[in-house]
Structures are given as structure tokens and as C-alpha cells.
Nucleic acid binder design. Structure first.
Length: 425
RNA sequence: GGAAGGGUGGGUGAGUGGCUGAAACCAACAGUUUGCUAAACUGUCGUACUGGGUAACUGGUACCGGGGGUUCGAAUCCCCCCCCUUCCGCCA
């Protein structure tokens, strides 16, 4: 959520930035500013009345003490009057605040100045490319066929016990999952991230804190009986660890990592786009999260991008990094890099990581601040990235590394799997 | 799930209707002094909204788990909810 004060003071900058999202927010912004003005006037009016009542109350107290009860009576009357008035004003003020908040929820983050204008994914900017696209032999199988053939993942069984989008991993397939998770966590730890095992279920406040609520309510699984949500990503519990916290400047940056399963209801999309591991309701992911000083958040974003880059290189997967254009960027992000791995059998790029700087957009809702050396508190910048999401990594590993001998395990992963090839049973 | 007790500033912890935005102590920060990795002393030391001021700063309001109520006036009384602790029950 944007800060009203920021919109008020830098209206044109905000509007120009938002324009990159290929949407006009000027009407909403104007409405917010209009409400803001009324809100502040109302606030002042209320405060003045309360101040008067406070003075009177004190006087009444003094008069009572000196036994002069009659003299207190008119003052009592006035405070009663004031009270009736303030009650009305308080209601108005609460309404204004609510209206303003609802409108603010509609405004996405302002893209960073380097983010280009764009309508769709076609206008994203490729900033890096690595690896050879393997020229597979005549037998070029998509991962769902490989998964079945090698008995790694059983989609049908998942349907039986839960439903579509909940695969069952078994044998070497399960082992591969666990190997990847451990590999990613170890790499994150080496890079200085502290590992957390957070709850996989969060409350409403946490959902609002990172911005999944209210915008993406339908995306999360909701447990009505306890009013809790299944996490769609570890970003939610990890970032919320610092909700309502004021850090010391020297504590920054905070670097966190965690593995969690992720749950997404995701409606829509059909056909081969969602086949196999391409789109699931439950999947595993290792997330990296940082809370950063505003002056260094973009350097940190680059750093996180490098980290993810390293992971993909160690997994020997051809990939590209693209910087999203305004129109393709998520609601809460100020700048996002997507990582896409080329899946040789499906012959398409699969998104495996999204690494973003949210600047103060999340921090404002989270109320995560730090006290600077000048003694002032200001909002931190929050960043996060998938490092990495498993399913599409597994898909591309299976597809890109398929050989006549079996599925070749990249060198870096062998210590974790304990085998060099996945062979047919 | 049952019973009892409790939730106050970074921490410990006073405070049962006005003198309390909140004692005291600890921690932290700044300074002074003395000097061997420290002590003593002095000062500062919550957050949000809002008015005035370029700013330094300064005025006001709100907040003592959350929400409502009583009262001229509430951290303090009443009601609802949440959470924590202990005991019992259940259980991996």
C-alpha cells in the first residue's frame, strides 16, 4: 500500500510511475487526495474539540476538590455537548479513513524508474541469458511421460487422495525433491541467509501484511473454522516475522530463507500449459527474503538475482532473466526479474523464479521500520525471490537431462541425491 | 476442552477514577570526568495522526492486548473478544 503522504507530496511522480503499468490511476489518486483533505480537516476539528473537553475536565476536577460544585455544572454541560459532537465526528472520521484505505488498496506499487512501460509480457526486457539449449535426440519426452516411465511422480494417485494439482512423489522422485530442497537451503545459508521453518498457515493480519489480502483472497486456501489461510509462499510468514517491528539501522539487511510447501488455488488456464508439473495447487519452494535499507535495496536486488543465477548454473539448466515491464509486473512490486528455464521437450520457457523489490509497499502495511542514525524512523524496503520453486525445475531437469542411460543428475546435486542417474526400474 | 491467574514503554515492574504518557530499576544512546579494555555522574530515551515552521523545533489529539460501555474525567470500574501462564483432561 502506498503512503498517502507520498502521494500528496509527489503526486506527479507517482502518476507518471503508475502510467507504466498501462493503466490510468489519476481518478483514484484524485479521489484519495480529496478524501485526505477532508480527513485531515476532520481530524483537526476533532482534536480541537477533545482538547477543549480535556481542559474543562481538569477544571471540573479542581472545582470539585475545592468544594465549588455549582461552578462546575456549566462546564459539565459543555463537556457533555462536546462529547455528543465528537462522537459524530469520530464516526465520520472513521468512515473517511476506511474509504481512503479501500481506495489505497486499489493502487499498485509505483514501478522503479528503470522499469519500462509495457502492456504485456511481450514488452519485457531480456537482460541475461545463459547455457546451451540441449539438442535432444529423436526421443524427446515431456516430463510427465518421463515421470510416469521412471515412476517418479504419480499425478493420478494425487487426484485419488486429494484432487488435480496435488502430485504424489515417490522413490527417486521424492528423493530428488528432498535433494533440491536441501541444496537450495544450503546455498542460501552459504550466502548468509538465516533459515526458518515457519508455520504453513497464517492469520488474516499476515495476509494483509504482505498484500495477499485483500487483492488475492481467492488465490489462498482458507480454513474457515479457524479463520486461517494456507500460505501461498514462504514470503508471507517470513516477511511477517517483522510485522510491527522497528529495527535498528545496523541490523539491516535482514536475510531470511525458508523451505515451505506452497498452496495456490489458481483458477484458469487450460491444456498443455498446466500439464504435469507446470501448474500445481501444492508445490515446494525455497524462498529468500530480505529487509533492506532503502539506499541499498537495489544493490541487494541485483545480489539476489546473482544468487538465483548461481543456482541455475549449478543445476546446468539453460535460462534467461527478464526484467518485467510495467504492465506485466505484480501488484506489489516496484521491480521484478523473472527467471525462465528452457524446457527442451516442451520447447518453451518456464518461469522458475520471480525476484522483486517491493520498496516500502509491503513495509507500509507491515509497519516494518528502522530507526536511522538521525533518530527518525522510516520504512524498510522488502525484497524476496524464489530460490527456487521446485516443480518446473524438476520438469526441466527431467527434460533437459534425459539421456539414453537415464536422467543425468547435475554434479552439484549428486551429493544430495546420492545417485548420478535416475534409471528405469 | 475444564479451572484459576494474568496481559502496562526495548526488558523487569509500580500504578484501583483527575497531580500518570505513565514511578523505579535495567538496557540503549549522547556528553562530562577519571583513565588500561571499565566505573561514576549528567542528560536523552515510545508510536501514530495532525496544526505551525524551509528547517532545527514546537502546539494538539489518540494509544497501558483488541473492541464497546459507565463517567465531566479511565491504564484504573463494567461487558465482549483475543492471547499468555499454571493445574486437570486429551493427544503426536
Amino acid at each position: 500500500m502506498l503512503q498517502v503522504a507520498n502521494i500528496r507530496e509527489n503526486k506527479q511522480l507517482v502518476l507518471d510511475g503508475l502510467a507504466k503499468r498501462n493503466k490510468d490511476f489519476s481518478i483514484t489518486v484524485d479521489e484519495i487526495l480529496q478524501i485526505d483533505e477532508t480527513r485531515r480537516k476532520t481530524q483537526k476539528q476533532l482534536d480541537d474539540l477533545l482538547a477543549e473537553a480535556n481542559v474543562l475536565s481538569k477544571e471540573i476536577g479542581d472545582l470539585f476538590k475545592s468544594g465549588n460544585k455549582e461552578a462546575a455544572e456549566p462546564k459539565k454541560l459543555r463537556t457533555t455537548e462536546i462529547k455528543e459532537e465528537t462522537k459524530k465526528i469520530e464516526v465520520t472520521l472513521a468512515e473517511l479513513e476506511e474509504q481512503q484505505k479501500q481506495l489505497l488498496y486499489l493502487i499498485p506499487n509505483v514501478p522503479h524508474k528503470d522499469v519500462v512501460f509495457g502492456k504485456t509480457a511481450d514488452e519485457n526486457v531480456e537482460v541475461y541469458k545463459w547455457g546451451e539449449i540441449p539438442s535432444l535426440s529423436e526421443v524427446k519426452k515431456p516430463h510427465w511421460d518421463i515421470a510416469a516411465e521412471y515412476q517418479l511422480i504419480d499425478f493420478e494417485l494425487g487426484v485419488k487422495i486429494t484432487g488435480a494439482g496435488f502430485p504424489v512423489y515417490s522413490g527417486a522422485g521424492a528423493r530428488l525433491q528432498r535433494a533440491l530442497i536441501n541444496f537450495f537451503l544450503d546455498e542460501a545459508q552459504k550466502a548468509g541467509y538465516t533459515e526458518f521453518i515457519p508455520p504453513h498457515v497464517v492469520n488474516e493480519d499476515s495476509g494483509y501484511g504482505t498484500g495477499q489480502l485483500p487483492d488475492k483472497e481467492g488465490q489462498m486456501y482458507y480454513i474457515g473454522a479457524d479463520d486461517l489461510y494456507l500460505i501461498p509462499t514462504a514470503e508471507v510468514p517470513l516477511t511477517n516475522l517483522y510485522r510491527d517491528v522497528i529495527l535498528k539501522e545496523e541490523e539491516l539487511p535482514i536475510k531470511m530463507t525458508g523451505y515451505t510447501p506452497c498452496f495456490r488455488r489458481e483458477a484458469g488456464s487450460y491444456g498443455k500449459d498446466v500439464r504435469g508439473l507446470n501448474r500445481l495447487h501444492q508445490f515446494d519452494k525455497v524462498e529468500i527474503v530480505q529487509l533492506a535499507h532503502p539506499s541499498e535495496s537495489y544493490a541487494i536486488l541485483e545480489n539476489m538475482v546473482d544468487h538465483v543465477k548461481g543456482l541455475l548454473q549449478k543445476l546446468e539448466l539453460p535460462f534467461r532473466i527478464i526484467r518485467l515491464c510495467g504492465g506485466d509486473m505484480g501488484f506489489t512490486s516496484a521491480m521484478t526479474y523473472d527467471f525462465e528455464v528452457f524446457s527442451a521437450a516442451q520447447e518453451r520457457w518456464l518461469e522458475v523464479s520471480s525476484t522483486s523489490n517491493f520498496e516500502t509497499f509491503q513495509a507500509n502495511r507491515l509497519k516494518c521500520r528502522f530507526k536511522g542514525s538521525d533518530g527518525k524512523t522510516q520504512l524498510v524496503h522488502t525484497l524476496n525471490g524464489s530460490a527456487l520453486a521446485l516443480p518446473r525445475i524438476v520438469a526441466s531437469l527431467l527434460e533437459n537431462h534425459q539421456t539414453a542411460e537415464g536422467i543425468r543428475i547435475p554434479k552439484a546435486l549428486i551429493p544430495y541425491t546420492g545417485f548420478e542417474f535416475i534409471r528405469k526400474k
